[in-house]
């Protein structure tokens, strides 16, 4: 009897260690990025583009990468929404009766979610070479949107699944068409869920480096058209960190801090939105 108790205590001890390990990892990561990034974070960093000699430690900032990343992620998210929202609605409004088929699509989406972004990046680059397109914001937007599409559809689908059948039937019985039911009832009913799905995809888009490595290129200027190449934050961090010069490396840390803050902000916003989600919902 005593042995049994010891065993349980031992494993409970291991559980505490595991939980602390995970918690400590997060705090260690965030803390070390803040600790290293804060000293060289300045107004200049976020408000100016690289000046001459920036990569040797002279003045300038990474505004080009911040704006570039925002353009890229916003563009990719909008493009993904254009396809993603109709797909998710189609699955949950039109295909309601064909459960097997919808589950098949879900399975397929889960598979797509797992494909590494470097594969998309390499594939995107090959297509560009074939068509003779140069690295550009547009190429990046298309590649990233393909890569976040399954994530967005699946996240939206999870929320749309919970819309009660009664609402669907009520809407149809009042004489609305299926597409009106889809866009005016289902989508409105799940606006907070839609917002979190969009934020999730946006977070993925802004943080991914492997898919933009060959498709968007890198430049010190803020792009003025979608056919121009653009810098992105993850690549700015990656390139600056590879520098042998101390000042440039410390800028990499503060760039990492900026990206971390953006990601934390997205997380906080989507948490607030989904907390409200449960308040404004018609329940049956």
């Amino acid at each position: 009897m005593k042995l049994k108790k010891t065993e349980e205590i031992f494993f409970k001890f291991l559980m505490y260690i595991s939980v602390s390990f995970i918690t400590a990892s997060l705090f260690l990561i965030v803390f070390s990025i803040f600790y290293k990034g804060l000293p060289s974070l300045s107004w200049e960093m976020v408000s100016e583009t690289p000046k001459g000699g920036f990569y040797f430690g002279k003045e300038g900032g990474i505004l080009n990468a911040i704006i570039g990343s925002l353009y890229l992620s916003i563009g990719a998210t909008i493009l993904a929404m254009l396809f993603g929202i109709p797909i998710a609605l189609f699955m949950n409004v039109y295909l309601r009766k064909y459960n097997r088929f919808v589950n098949g699509i879900r399975f397929f989406l889960d598979l797509l979610w797992g494909i590494p972004s470097i594969v998309y990046g390499a594939f995107g680059f090959t297509i560009m070479v074939m068509l003779g397109i140069k690295t550009s914001l547009l190429a990046g937007i298309i590649t990233v949107s393909i890569f976040i599409l399954p994530i967005m559809v699946r996240a939206l689908d999870e929320v749309l699944k919970t819309v009660p059948v009664g609402l669907f039937e009520a809407s149809l019985s009042l004489g609305s068409t299926r597409s009106e039911t889809a866009f005016r009832v289902f989508l409105r009913q799940t606006i907070p869920g839609l917002a979190t799905a969009i934020l999730l995809s946006f977070g993925r888009a802004i943080g991914d480096a492997a898919s933009v490595l060959f498709t968007t290129g890198y430049t010190d200027h803020i792009p003025t058209s979608i056919m121009q190449p653009t810098a992105t934050l993850p690549l700015a961090i990656f390139f600056q960190l590879g520098s042998p010069i101390e000042e440039v490396r410390s800028r990499a840390y503060s760039s990492a801090l900026i990206l971390t803050i953006i990601i934390l902000l997205i997380s906080v916003i989507s948490r607030i939105v989904s907390a409200k989600y449960n308040k404004h919902r018609i329940k049956f």
């Binding site: 997060l26 990561i29 070390s32 990025i33 977070g203 840390y253 990206l259 971390t260």
Partner: peptide, 14 residues
């Protein structure tokens, strides 16, 4: 969730 959302380049810097 935050651990899942951190970009891989941040993990790399860390």
């Amino acid at each position: 969730d935050i651990l899942a959302g951190l970009p891989s380049v941040i993990y790399g810097v860390w």
